[in-house]
C-alpha cells in the first residue's frame, strides 16, 4: 500500500519558488500497474522521487505500507528503499566501472545478503532478463536495450514490492521498448506493484490504471484526451 495525502513539494532557489506538487493525493494498491503521464515539467519525476523516498517533501503525509515516512531518518529511508523499492531510470544509471554481475550486486550488498544468496539471486534475475551470457560485460559493451534490461534485473534482484520506473523506454527504440514493456508486465503478473512514468500514450494504455499529472496536481480530465492535447 502506497498512500499520499495532500503532499506538496516546493523547490526553492534564490530567485523562484517552483511548486512541483500541490496537494497531491493518491493511493496505489497491492499488485497495481499504474502509468503516470503529463506534460513536461508537470511534476511526474517529483512524484516518483517522493514515492521512492529519494526526496523529502514540503507538506502532507505519505504512508508506505501504512508507515508514515515523514518522521523517518535518512538511514531508515535508505533501508526502506533498499528492501521495498526498485528503481528503473530513463538513462539506465549503470555504474560504468562495474560489470553486469557487480551492477546487479549493488543493492544486494547494501541489503547484507551473504555471498551465496547474492550469487543465486543475481544469476536468476540476469537469466530472467535474458543476459545470462553477458555476466562479465561492462555496461559500455552493451546496447541501450540490454543496459535497461540489466537495470531492471538490478531493480528486481532484491524482490521489491514496488517497482518505480521513470520513462524506462525513453531512450529506446520501439522494438526495445516493447521488450522492456513485456518484461514489466510479466513482473507485474507475479505480484509486484509498478508505477511507471511515460510519454508514450500507447504504453501508458497498457497499464491497468492511468493517472494524469498537470501543474503538480492529479488531473481529473480524461487522460487519453489530455495526452493528445499536451502532445
Amino acid at each position: 500500500m502506497l498512500s499520499m495525502q495532500n503532499v506538496s513539494m516546493v523547490y526553492r532557489t534564490e530567485t523562484v519558488e517552483t511548486h512541483a506538487l500541490r496537494d497531491f493525493s493518491l493511493e496505489v494498491g497491492e499488485g497495481e500497474f499504474v502509468s503516470v503521464t503529463g506534460p513536461s515539467g508537470s511534476g511526474k519525476t517529483t512524484f516518483l522521487n517522493i514515492a521512492g523516498l529519494l526526496e523529502e517533501f514540503s507538506s502532507g503525509t505519505y504512508k508506505l505500507d501504512g508507515k508514515d515516512t515523514s518522521s523517518l531518518g535518512d538511514t531508515e529511508r535508505s533501508r526502506l528503499r533498499n528492501e521495498k523499492i526498485g528503481f528503473i531510470f530513463q538513462s539506465f544509471n549503470l555504474i560504468p566501472e562495474l560489470d553486469i554481475f557487480d551492477n546487479v550486486d549493488v543493492p544486494l550488498r547494501y541489503r547484507g545478503f551473504n555471498a551465496a544468496e547474492r550469487k543465486e539471486r543475481i544469476e536468476r534475475v540476469i537469466d530472467m532478463v535474458g543476459l545470462g551470457s553477458r555476466m562479465k560485460h561492462l555496461p559500455s559493451q552493451l546496447s541501450g536495450g540490454q543496459q535497461q534490461r540489466v537495470a531492471i534485473a538490478r531493480a528486481l534482484a532484491g524482490e521489491p514490492r514496488f517497482l518505480l520506473a521513470d520513462e524506462p523506454t525513453g531512450n529506446l527504440d520501439s522494438e526495445m521498448a516493447e521488450s522492456v514493456m513485456q518484461l514489466l508486465e510479466e513482473i507485474n503478473a507475479k505480484g509486484t506493484t509498478i508505477i511507471m512514468v511515460t510519454h508514450e500514450p500507447k504504453l501508458a494504455g497498457r497499464a491497468k490504471r492511468n493517472i494524469f499529472v498537470r501543474d503538480g496536481r492529479l488531473s481529473s480530465v480524461e487522460p487519453q484526451l489530455q495526452v493528445a492535447v499536451g502532445g
Binding site: 529519494l54 535518512d74 538511514t75 535508505s78 533501508r79 528503499r81 531510470f89 555504474i95 547494501y110 538490478r154
Partner: peptide, 16 residues
C-alpha cells in the same frame, strides 16, 4: 556523483 546518487537510490545509507 551520478553513480553515488544511484547507489543511494538503490538503498545505500550515508555511512555506507
Amino acid at each position: 556523483t551520478k553513480q553515488i546518487g544511484t547507489r543511494r537510490a538503490l538503498g545505500a545509507t550515508r555511512p555506507s
